[in-house]
Design a protein around this nucleic acid. Sequence first.
RNA 1: GCCCCUGUGGCGGAACUGGUAGACGCGCUGGAUUCAAAAUCCAGUUCCUUCGGGAGUGGGGGUUCGAUUCCCCCCGGGGGUACCA
Length: 955
Amino acid sequence: MMEYNPRAIEKKWKKYWDDNQVYKVSNKSDKPKFYVLDMFPYPSGSGLHVGHPLGYIASDIYSRFKRLNGFNVLHPMGYDAFGLPAEQYAIQSGIHPAKSTSDNIARYREQLENLGFNYDWTREVQTCDPKYYKWTQWIFLQLYESYYDNDINKAQSIRLLTEAFEKEGNLGINAVTTQEDIFTAEEWNEMTAAQQEDILMNYRLAYRKKGYVNWCEELGTVLANDEVKDGVSERGGYPVEKKAMLQWSLRITAYAERLLNDLDTVDWSDSLKAMQRNWIGRSEGAQLFFDVADSDEKIEVFTTRPDTIFGATYMVLAPEHDLVAKLTSSEQQAAVDDYLKYVNARSERERMSEVKEVTGTFIGAYAINPFTKTKIPIWIGEYVLKDYGTGAIMAVPSDDDRDNAFATKFGLEIIDVVDKTDYPGATLSDKIGKMINSQYLNGMEVKEAIETMLEKIEEEGIGTRKINYKLRDANYSRQRYWGEPFPIVYNQDGTSFPLDESELPLELPNLEDFKPASGGKSPLARLDDWINLDNGYVRETDTMPGFAGSSWYFLRYMDAHNDEEFVGQDAVNYWQDVDLYIGGTEHAVGHLMYSRMWHKFLYDNKLVPTAEPYKKLINQGMIQGVIESLYLMKEKKDGFSHFMCAGLAKEQGVENFSKILIHVDFVKEYGSDNSYIDIDSIKKFIDWRPSYKDAIFECSKGVYQKGVFTSKGDATDSRLVTQSEVGKMSKSKYNVINPDVVVERYGADCFRMYEMFLGPIEQSKPWDTNGIDGVSKFLRKLWSLFYNENGDYLVKDEEPSKEHLKILHTAIKKVNADIERFSMNTCVSNFMVCVNDLKKAKCNNKAVLQDLVILLSPFAPHVTEELWHALGNDTTVNDATYPQANESYLVEDSYTYPISINGKKRALADFANGLSKEELEKGALELEAIQKWTEGKTIRKVIVVPKRMINIVVG
RNA sequence: GCCCCUGUGGCGGAACUGGUAGACGCGCUGGAUUCAAAAUCCAGUUCCUUCGGGAGUGGGGGUUCGAUUCCCCCCGGGGGUACCA
């Protein structure tokens, strides 16, 4: 072969890998296992851009590296194939989501294969495949048939619960539940089946309940908390409102404490763990009751600051609180009604964006402060949330910013209870200071006072210690078509029944019209034949959310074709858990939280051997794009749109211009300060945006309009400078770079190495196609160690020289260490150094080059497979043995010491290894370059660190 | 507001536990080869400089013989979260 030809080489070896099933992985092996997982992609219609494969390349390198080091490596891929976008697309286009999804999957597969990944495709899964979602439905039913036992701290069969109810009622049951009323065994046994079922719903881990949910009108569905950002839907950015609906939920709150504590056992980034801890939001405090004056009612509140109770001068209930109706006085009825009307009219978004403004109203009732025994007014206010704590607070305006703002606005009493004069600069959230105006607490530090009050509250029987979580149960119903149907039917009373396991999977029926049904229902609600069963029962018409299928997919890869179990026990006991998970941070609180919960549930049921699914997790950064735009004058010129060069626009003040996005493909030297468009580019732009066909394009070289360029001097072409900035790579920014295009030009090996070379995987960085030449040159240089320009094979099988071995083993040592710490960018640098040095040293030695080929193969699998065979091997390089660094090749007989005067480097000098500290000191002081600095000065100290540096302190 | 991450040449980025700041690559400059270009190769490239040196890792302080690295304060960028009681 004459020169390095990636296109031919890559095609050839892909076929070889395929024909020989090189990447097929067995569940039976004597080798230690290693499981490398990529985050489950949703196959979107726009395909992959260069940002997506970043994590896939890193995981591919690592899994190849592990395989070469003697591990049996599982590295699978599949698709999170149910989801909203396909359905939204179906509504617009009429194309069935199954069709568009499978088309998109085909495109993804093609793009992924193009990059030479070592996936075992025989294990591919798709969540929309009935063979897969049979088991999603099955796990849901296990959740439905379980409750959480606080005494043994794990999930238990609901059968054990009903047995206990039959014998002793629910008094002795310590379970996670929303059941408040106590009942005896007799009462339970006398209940109707429907009544019993209602009670069980308060215990089931998958349960159905009417509650306030995030309703998105535009998407026609309910969303989980993590799918709502800033009061709008994460997908699409549509408004979301709180709506009371009958919905399925998962009792993830049962696992809050374990989800929090077990974060200490996994190797994840601090920021990711922090996000999860925040989302769980654990806080310790007290739950206590305030009596209501002239009433039997009590108001239950949660507080983390029981020490400040002597400063509690009023109470606030959430507007939706149950007691509001009961406690409102007739005089205040009109005011309360007005206020509730106002609150209900406000969208979630308004409520969030106008946080600064305090609103509320007095309801005309009073509570008794249990410690001061004074009557304090009860208010309602938006700032108290129905679904956190008890939906009611004791307000301490002196020690809480929100209470303070409220009290100030409405003229409520403020009593100082914490003296912070000892702590200048301390804020209210610091929880420090000395107690005042608080009877027996006076003089105590806050910490001590909290503990004292907690004891006091329990002693007096007005409340208990309590731990609260921000984490809410997860909405599990979606009023959509393209998701897993619930294996649930209802009788005429609305009581739910699970389908029998033998009836699974409950397949998603076919549909032609994908618009939501009326009344906030899924399109499935229109399928009368499907809904209504012969026995008079009806089916659930909602479908499961996206996180259902993705919460356990990594288990299915272990045993993808098992028809008997969701995963075979032999398989799961062999593969255990995921050793390395690479993916973006966007799943921090959604997918990662849900799948951890499912895993813990399966663990409680002894179906998986580990308590956590993902041992180590790396968040890859985003690859950003360059966003290019043109400056368009806000005022038209002679009725024509008028674009101007960025330079001219800046002179005239950019506020007079609007920025019009332009496709980066049209821009010359895009991304640089000098990015510009010439006449050719302008023509492309006009073809793309025909509304600007008559526009004026003005730059310092001249003016272009309607096909004519009028030069301002002797220029023959336009050079209209565009505005470049770094931002998200996305279809809507017209800056998407398709990896296929890069691979076509430079080859997959080059693309893979260049993505790694851009920088650390965790960091976000901009894509710049220009830089790829460096990696391309490197690969050609590598090739040139094997073949000269005439195609002559240069490799010689002889004894390697010491120099060559040293170059090789330096690289082995560094690359090995760098892969282990996922520093792929420095690995690429090390390869470049190695090849540069071998080239300079004119190395064509077989032993040296063969080890180099193995070392490089995880990064550039195609070219190394070619060279591996060229070296005379006839099995795949994947089955080679990874070279180990031999320190004896690396020893030097001297070291070049930097010699500093007062910490500032002044000279370099070679000293033989093995010299004593005294000899090194003497040698350094004798140097001419050093004497120049020490002359006439006192040498106070000399620090000698062998094989590092010498520092001379003079004064 | 709170929490987490981050700040190094024109650019992407190196520098493992404190020890030669700027590896490697892009870009740029000069040169070789060429009729010319591409490709390739060689040399240079942090800034200032009176060519002795001086300054320098967002800014200011500190610890140390020595700080990009550790500590304190401040500023900028990114992400998460938000009336969470």
